[in-house]
Design a protein around this nucleic acid. Structure first.
Lengths: 229, 229
DNA sequence: CCCGAACCGTGAAATTTTTCACAATTCATG
DNA sequence: CATGAATTGTGAAAAATTTCACGGTTCGGG
């Protein structure tokens, strides 16, 4: 019934592992790490066994070739481990992570401010905050930043005008649902939701990542209990 | 080779879905929601199809029975949907989520403060912050809270003395590794890591949830790209 | 009191994901 | 330059997870 999904790309778990790996490799930039990066070493970075890494990369390469582009440097590969920089670039190309994607931040409470002012180091140039919103004019006026601030009323307009595709929700639970809708209405195709309210993919085709401290704690607690702790 | 895992409990994906569901149901408390909660309705809460819910609950019940305890109210069930309160309680018992688990919070920067001062509503009585740490004495003295504050130097001692099993990392990336080690040394068995540095299960048997904004954004970006956006 | 609609519970089938195992390749070294 | 140790890449097997499909139960009407 929904089998006309042609599997346009990599399987979900593979995609997620590779994306995580990319994040980690980005942060390693320069700081070296083990020189010849064996699949085992890479795996430890991610807490998965080496063969998973090899398989994932195998799929990624197959996919990239199918896409077209002949590998720029089809050189030596099949022996002494991976090179961090090249690996990162490979994943970046394969998953489209080199694109710059401006994001909209909604909610300037404590969490929102933390995100807004995050230090350069853990900021990422690839996801510049192109606009931030809050429902309190007072707070907007008090916040000091280079990021353009708007009232929540303007979410749809601004999101649309700036062509923003990714939204970050850092609002109180009550507002979550509505803000999500407005962002989507303004053209957003993906949301990171820090609210404890789970946002279901509003219109189809919207990617949502739900992150809540309580949620994580409940999951953790479940695992601990299963282990008898 | 590692097959002496007797599968003491529910499969990982099932456990995670149920834990998430518990989080959501807790928040719904009282506010009603659709009355007779059909599996489909519950599924929408979680963005999964109804049969997944039914299957998960089926496994949960089987597991609970095997555990021992005869169901208190083995009453009518197999017809008109679930009752939110009873469902929550069922999951709570099955996953051990009714236990109170005091947590340690490390790092009182912007993010740490946000967590420390989180409003009662999204606080959860089940995870009281029993101690908070920071490497800056200055910051410790300036922070106003009822939570007992300590210098990071004391992590091992305090964690051990208070019998804390769960740690939250809200420190700068550089410090992540070390703080994680100290928490585990002090007896912690689980960590929620907000650092972009991925913490691999230090000693085995330590549960880790890694959450980073950049990480989530990279995953999102990967999905968007796969969809051709 | 009987009918039909709505819904749960679950074994079995289908699908997806992980793991395995091994040929092929590279490099350092004596 | 031959040998051995280390490591990748990948088809195929194994395991895990999701989906399906249907029997059985309850409830509201007529």
């Amino acid at each position: 019934m929904k089998n006309f999904t042609v599997r346009a790309g990599l399987p979900d778990p593979v995609l997620e592992r590779l994306a995580r790996l990319y994040t980690i490799l980005s942060r390693l930039e320069g700081s070296g790490g083990p020189r010849p990066f064996s699949s085992k070493a890479v795996g430890e970075l991610l807490a998965v066994p080496g063969h998973t890494i090899r398989k994932d990369l195998s799929l990624l390469k197959t996919f990239l070739q199918a896409e077209q582009e002949a590998d720029p440097d089809r050189a030596a590969d099949s022996d002494q481990g991976y090179d961090a920089a090249r690996l990162r670039s490979l994943i970046g190309r394969g998953l489209g992570l080199e694109k710059v994607r401006p994001v909209a931040l909604v909610g300037l409470g404590r969490l929102g401010s933390a995100i807004l002012h995050k230090k350069r180091e853990w900021t990422d140039l690839r996801y510049p905050i192109a606009a931030a919103f809050d429902a309190s004019i007072n707070r907007i006026e008090l916040t000091r930043t280079e990021v353009p601030l708007f009232h929540s009323r303007e979410i749809v307009r601004v999101t649309r005008e700036k062509g923003i595709l990714v939204g970050i929700l850092a609002v109180p639970a009550e507002a979550a649902r509505e803000v999500a809708e407005r962002l989507v209405e303004g053209g957003a195709r993906a949301l990171v939701n820090f609210t404890p309210v789970l946002i279901a993919p509003a219109g189809k085709g919207v990617v949502v990542r739900n992150v809540s401290l309580t949620g994580e704690l409940d999951i953790i607690s479940g695992y601990l209990d299963r282990e008898g702790v």
